[in-house]
Write a protein that binds this DNA or RNA. Structure first.
Lengths: 237, 237
DNA sequence: GCAAAAGTGTTCAAAATACACCCATGC
DNA sequence: GCATGGGTGTATTTTGAACACTTTTGC
């Protein structure tokens, strides 16, 4: 428990938390990583608190490493959620359970928190989901979310909206895909982000003439017209 | 004093502050609005704290209204500054002066704060600078800043960098210019933001064919080839 | 045999870029 | 008379958009 909840009222910066919207791509869908919350019935974003001697970005990286094992992750601040009522939205949670589990000191967690929202883009196969006593992680399609704790559904929606607004100018497909991928997978991500169908041929030509991807082989194990595999070109300047 | 410093350790959300980078355009330069800090010798961003029952955006709007009199302002979160040492950067400030002025209760201000950075873009002529007992506002060219309190120079730099990254895709010239302006003023802002010279004719054609500005007259009081005045077209819907 | 996934080029329109000369004024 | 700011148009290149048919396999 301690390892996964090293926080107390004294060692954290007060009234401030961090929540991470960890997104990935798998089987033609965008997924978000959720944890079963320590109070039954609701799922929550992987999150945590910032220690008194830590900055927010470091805290976010630490939290992500703890949850995913990864340290080289694309992670960005996207919005501060500060509605004074956001932590009152708790859907009739039974905090006595929490107190029983964690001791009465934990009640500092009932106070008002503002939370810094971060989004992270990861490669699906890089993540190994590991359950712990009080945690049970799982991938959910972003538009088929389970019942969410507090305002976490809103945080996810805002992360997606922010990414969508930026995608046209700052696309990040590389962060979501494995080393080798088909053009169809890449286009699929663009179509999700831009919320429109893209012409196959024009999309492919643009990616190739932009020089961001290169052909690296053909998919094996398919017994018909095997698709070409591409990988992103590492621009080492 | 109270009106301009309504905060105390009990009514604010702990460890959290707000700083506003208020930018404008005047005589072919970009300016930032600074206040002489209540400790002598350094200038500071207009800022403040979030009340216990207030959200951060409302607090930022409240602070801006107090400082500028304006309530209809373009204001956006851009970065959370959370270096644990950021409030230790105070350049040998004489806090005994502060204590003498404000009473010993004010010493809560010495604790660690994370600060949410907002940028605001305003029309220069809309702002009337008013001095108060403990405040003395002034416009400074963004690349000729005076000695700044704490990490405020860094906050300004980061605001400018953020705007520059977004400008190509989300230009906001309208927010900085008066109702009527010359194309040369508009291009001047773009050149500052994009950090490059733009072709006069191509720039003008693009703005016009994009349909965001319209001709509204000619500048008066110039006794030679009077420049055309433009104004942004209000897109209703 | 038909639906699904993948391969492949051309044409047209729109947008971005490059570029030069004239006019009026202040100094 | 010359530097400054301002007015104006064309030609070229680049980019984006629209669009159809063939192959292979699974069912």
């Amino acid at each position: 428990m301690k390892e996964y909840f090293p926080y107390n009222a004294e060692n954290i910066h007060p009234g401030f938390s961090i929540d991470c919207v960890i997104l990935s791509y798998h089987k033609r869908k965008i997924y978000v990583l959720l944890n079963k919350f320590y109070l039954d019935g609701y799922w929550a974003l992987p999150g945590g608190f910032m220690f008194a001697n830590e900055d927010a970005d470091s805290a976010a990286y630490r939290i992500l490493k703890m949850r995913t094992g990864l340290s080289d992750i694309y992670l960005r601040q996207f919005h501060l959620f500060s509605d004074p009522k956001r932590t009152e939205m708790n859907q009739h949670l039974d905090f006595s359970r929490l107190e029983a589990q964690m001791g009465s000191q934990i009640m500092w967690i009932m106070r008002r928190f503002v939370t810094m929202g971060y989004y992270a883009l990861v490669r699906y196969d890089d993540i190994e989901l590991v359950s712990h006593d009080n945690e049970q992680p799982g991938w959910y399609e972003v538009d088929k979310l389970p019942s969410m704790y507090s305002d976490h559904a809103n945080i996810i929606r805002t992360a997606i909206t922010t990414l969508r607004e930026l995608w046209e100018y700052f696309p990040l497909g590389e962060k979501l895909l494995p080393e080798q991928f088909t053009i169809s997978n890449l286009r699929n991500i663009y179509e999700f982000m831009l919320e429109k169908k893209l012409d196959r041929r024009n999309f492919q030509r643009k990616m190739l003439t932009d020089g961001v991807i290169q052909e690296v082989g053909r998919k094996e194990g398919v017994r018909y017209n095997a698709p070409v595999l591409y990988s992103f070109i590492n621009k080492k300047i």
